[in-house]
Simulated scan of single mutants.
Amino acid sequence: MKPYVLSLALGLLVGVIYALFQVRSPAPPVIALVGLLGILLGEQIPPLIKSVIKPDTVATSWLQHQVAPHVFGELPQRAKAEPAAAAAAAAVSTTHKES
């Protein structure tokens, strides 16, 4: 989520700079962006209809597995600690507790 917020903040900053210099943005008009959103959401309608007509035997979240990865791209994940690093951190914390 953090990269998305940072991207939005930087976009707003660039927009303010463009406005100060009275330069038009090279970005497509809002109507084009709304059209792209419609395309992304429209691609989700056929799988939704298929799942209603012939549901899978295993109940899964259609929104979680079909829509989110396609519409939002791969969202950033939390970094997983290496097993050796986790063991070292645990050893350090127990050493500090004993002293």
Rank of each mutant, 00 (worst) to 15 (best):
A68E: 13
D56M: 09
A68H: 04
T94L: 13
A81C: 02
S25K: 04
Q22W: 05
L75K: 07
T94V: 13
L41P: 02
I49D: 07
H96S: 12
E43V: 05
K54H: 10
L40T: 03
P83R: 03
L33I: 08
Q64Y: 09
K54E: 10
L20A: 09
V67R: 00
Q66D: 10
R78D: 13
H65S: 12
H96C: 08
E74P: 10
V14R: 09
V92R: 11
L13N: 01
K97F: 11
H96A: 13
R24A: 14
A88L: 11
V58M: 03
A27N: 07
G11F: 13
P83K: 04
D56L: 12
G15Y: 04
I31R: 15
T94K: 14
A27G: 03
D56P: 00
A88G: 05
A68M: 14
E82T: 13
A27F: 14
S51R: 15
L36C: 04
L6H: 06
A87P: 01
Q44W: 00
L13P: 01
P3C: 01
S61C: 14
A84W: 04
E98A: 15
P3S: 06
V14G: 01
H70P: 02
P3K: 07
P3W: 02
G35N: 08
P28S: 12
E43F: 11
I45G: 01
P55D: 05
I45A: 14
L10R: 07
H70K: 15
L40K: 09
